[in-house]
Amino acid sequence: MQAVHRTSLLEEAAAAKNAIRSDASEVICNIVNDVFDSLQWTSVSGSIVQNVAALDEWRHRSLSDIEKDWAYLEFDRNKILVALSRYLDQEHFKSKRLDWLFLNVLVYAEYIATIDEVRRRLLGVDAFVMMKIRPIDQHTYDVHPLLKKWWHWPLALAAVAISFTLHPVATLLPIGAITAGIYKRNKAVGKINLTLHSMLTTYLSLNTFDLGWGNVKETLKESKNAGAIFDSSVFSLVERRIPSKAY
């Protein structure tokens, strides 16, 4: 998995003093620190928080990382976006690894935020909190497992049985309502899964420093068409790297 360390990026910025103004080099160092300081990892033992600290290394995440990241990794997306805006203002400094860091972190942060919102809405407070306290091992974007509320079926069957005792024709009412509800739910689930799958596929494609920026643009566009929302600054970064050899 590709990875960048805070120290190596600071060294790259410091080494660029001869090519750019020294004050610009200092700005880049501040930008690097702001990004890493925006990535906060919570260390937990049992159910007790032991420590909260900023990361000093960012590596491309795998499926086995996602659930623990959802539970324990916090992104200050606003701070990262401000850092990206400041970075894009430094027209005389371009870094392949810093470009990758911004793109990788922001696309991933958006995916984590999206699954967080979906789960918050589907699970209810108690189940949502329990899932965060005890994250599962393997991640799936599919939200169907979150909807297996078997207690719905006894209630539905009871409604059908009661209706039948009143009048056989009345049975059609709860059956129709149940069928319509299932159709509506499945349609919504299909849309959610399409969005999450597209976002995850987009992120997993970013495991390289040698990004094909044209391909990145198309992948982001496809994901956006599927319902994903990415900040305009992400597209600004991509657009600025497409026209010519960036490095």
Rank of each mutant, 00 (worst) to 15 (best):
R86I: 14
E110H: 06
K96R: 08
D99K: 04
D99L: 00
I115E: 13
D116C: 15
N104G: 00
E117V: 14
V118F: 09
E91L: 13
D116T: 15
D76I: 01
H92S: 10
K94M: 04
A83H: 07
N104W: 02
L122K: 11
N104H: 06
I112Q: 14
Y111P: 01
Y87N: 10
F93A: 04
L103K: 03
R119L: 06
A109M: 06
F75M: 08
Y111T: 07
D89K: 15
F102I: 06
H92A: 01
N78P: 01
A113L: 10
L106K: 05
V107E: 05
Q90G: 03
Y111E: 06
I112Y: 08
V82R: 09
L103R: 02
D89V: 12
K96F: 00
A113M: 08
S95H: 02
L106C: 05
K94R: 10
R97K: 13
Q90V: 03
V118W: 11
E67L: 12
A113I: 07
F102P: 01
A83V: 11
A113N: 14
F75H: 14
E110P: 02
E91C: 04
E74N: 07
I80L: 05
K94Q: 05
T114R: 15
L101H: 00
A83K: 10
D99E: 03
K94Y: 02
V118D: 13
V118L: 11
L122F: 10
E91R: 14
L73I: 05
Y108F: 13
A109H: 06
E67I: 07
K94S: 09
L88M: 12
D116E: 12
Y72R: 15
Q90W: 04
L106T: 01
A109V: 03
V82Y: 08
D89P: 04
